[in-house]
Amino acid sequence: MDYLEFKISCTEPFREILIAELSEVGFDSFLETDEGIDAYIQEDLIDREAYQEIIDRYKEAGKIEVKEGKMPKVNWNEEWEKHYDPIFVGDQVYVRASFHEPRPEFKYEIHINPKMSFGTGHHATTFLMLSHQLTLDHSGKRVLDIGAGTGILAIMAHKLEAAEIEAFDIDEWCVENGNENFDLNGMSKVRMGKGTVREVNPQGEFDIVLANINKNVLLDEMEVYSGLVKKGGKLLLSGFYEHDIADIQSRASSFGLSLLAQKTKDNWAALILEKI
């Protein structure tokens, strides 16, 4: 989806006022510039009338001038993705991009070209989730990856010989990119779905459920996750800080999930919970 860009020049006090008012009519992020602000909104979400009403209201007092443009859908992360280092998880897993050399001496090689999706192994939460996965027997198991990003955890499950894998994400980029990464890792039969766990509504129970998202989403969806894990099955969670472990654990416990293991790195945490 394309974004509309409004380069707004204004006097200093009106920078904050415009941000406050535009955020009330659907604009969610702004860049502060020397001249004023750059405001952005998804093209299909703009309420033209409400936007214009705000601009007109302060036009004179704030000496406002606007230049409107359109931002195409492109991979803004391309510059970083051109030259990052590969990731090693212990001595078993090597996560690389296409521009890195293959390293057949590693037991598990994961091939990821991220294209503005989350999950290259660089972030502590991905690293911790991969580390946790290495401690679990995936062989012949049914695995679900919720908020899959690049699909890296689902791919790890495939390398660990899971029998059946489902994965989805709310972001269109991730769906496209996840499928490309599945193809790169010999998983062309697995297709990434789009939506939240409630929208996708996966059927049946899973031996292992993976979710590296964020605290608010995990707390909100915990009951759904619990319903998806079979008795004795494992739920792996990350995307939150060490100091949030107690909140996550307490919520999980109220839905019959008991803490089995936890790992932390750079203040981030990842848990393995078991369905009792």
């Binding site: 974004y3 860009e5 941000i19 955020s23 969610d28 992020s29 702004f30 860049l31 502060e32 602000i37 750059d38 952005y40 998804q42 931002m71 803004w76 992360n77 391309e78 510059e79 970083w80 990052y84 991220p114 503005m116 999706s117 989350f118 290259t120 660089h122 972030h123 972001d171 980029w173 964020n214 608010n216």
Partner: peptide, 26 residues
Amino acid sequence: LQVKGGQANPSPPVGPALGSKGLNIM
């Protein structure tokens, strides 16, 4: 930048502002 709490994503302005400097947006 001014971004809604808990809702940063790689779309504009976060994407172009940080991406152009070679930072990892994600």
